[in-house]
């Protein structure tokens, strides 16, 4: 039963995506082109990494709203360190630094959640304010538009470029590989390691997981460190691609990211969630953001459209489950 309606959620999202693309192509044939695809993929990089991170937390039965603040913190302080102390640092080291800062901040969440046993929503709500407040008060609140050379170099590297028939350019930045890497790594952890199975087990039932010998605290701690590290990566990629480090960026996205993940079939109650669904959810959100206008809906209605999608996407399975429960009971 469970397997059935959760596969349904993914098919539903996939169908909506196809329908959207079909409608868009009918109203504007040039929609079906490489630039649309590369814009979509480009727009999905940061959101996608965030969504994978948020999914891992949801699968474990928790919720994290602080990852955007972690990303902003890691991104801005890394840029600041590079600019003021080590302008020549190559970009892989800069990225490692940002990932490290993110992981350290994630560890703070992990300590409160795993070792103090505080509810995840409340801890991350608190640390969202703390990280953001600390960043803006003590690290800095000014935009850095003069990014270090290594980050600018990174943003110029493309996987491929091309020219359209009408002379417009399109390209896919190297950063896309980061998303691919994150997805592969997370897939491996979740599906091929004991750690990953433990994450699902905790999400299913903490008590049962504990009884079969899962070290719940260690697994929870890992989850929040991992999410922090991914957030650090997403942050530095965001800054490189935007070619500016803005400490006010990113925070505010957290609820949309969680919405995308839930749209893809992950359950807030834990134990259920797939990478395919998550990526489909992200695709749909990015598609609506980028191309709503193409199917004839003015972009001022964008947030209404996303809201409706969330309600329909989560409402249908919830309603089906409720009806099934009513029939059974």
């Amino acid at each position: 039963m469970k397997r059935l309606d959760f596969s349904r959620n993914e098919t539903l999202v996939a169908l909506v995506i196809l329908g959207f693309c079909a409608l868009a192509t009918i109203s504007d044939p040039s929609f079906l082109s490489m630039p649309t695809l590369t814009d979509l993929l480009r727009g999905g990089i940061v959101l996608g990494i965030f969504a994978v991170a948020a999914m891992v937390v949801l699968v474990s039965g928790g919720i994290d709203v602080s990852f955007t603040a972690i990303a902003a913190f890691a991104m801005y302080s890394t840029t600041l360190i590079l600019v003021s102390l080590a302008p020549g640092l190559p970009w892989p080291l800069a990225f490692a630094l940002s990932v490290g800062i993110g992981a350290a901040l994630g560890a703070i969440n992990g300590i409160f959640i795993a070792f103090f046993g505080l509810p995840t929503l409340i801890v991350t709500l608190g640390t969202l304010s703390i990280f953001r407040g600390f960043l803006l008060t003590f690290v800095g609140s000014k935009l850095i538009s003069n990014l270090p050379q290594s980050m600018r170099d990174f943003s110029k590297q493309m996987l491929f470029r091309g020219t359209n028939a009408d002379g417009s350019f399109f390209s896919l930045p190297l950063a896309f590989l980061a998303l691919v890497g994150v997805v592969v790594l997370t897939w491996f952890i979740l599906n091929r390691t004991l750690l990953g199975r433990s994450i699902f087990a905790i999400g299913g039932s903490v008590e049962s997981a504990r009884r079969i010998g899962v070290n719940v605290r260690a697994v929870q701690f890992f989850i929040y460190v991992y999410v922090g590290a991914l957030a650090g990566l997403a942050g530095i990629i965001h800054a490189s691609m935007a070619r500016v480090a803005n400490p006010f960026d990113l925070v505010g996205l957290e609820l949309s990211v969680i919405a995308a993940v839930v749209l893809g079939g992950a359950r807030l109650t834990g134990g259920v969630g797939t990478l395919t669904g998550t990526l489909l959810g992200v695709t749909l959100i990015v598609l609506v953001r980028n191309s709503l206008i193409v199917i004839g809906i003015p972009s001022t209605w964008q947030s209404v459209a996303i809201g409706v999608l969330i309600l329909v996407g989560t409402g249908l399975p919830a309603w089906q489950a409720k009806r099934a429960a009513a029939r059974a009971g």
């Binding site: 609820l255 969680i258 919405a259 839930v262 807030l268 109650t269 003015p298 001022t300 209605w301 964008q302 947030s303 209404v304 459209a305 996303i306 809201g307 409706v308 999608l309 969330i310 309600l311 989560t314 409402g315 919830a318 309603w319 489950a321 409720k322």
Partner: peptide, 26 residues
Amino acid sequence: LIAVLGLPAILATLGSGLIFTGIAVA
């Protein structure tokens, strides 16, 4: 949404909040 259709409150109000804000924007 919450009582009749059985959506989790956090998602129902997240989605409806976007809709209300969206209508206000529109």
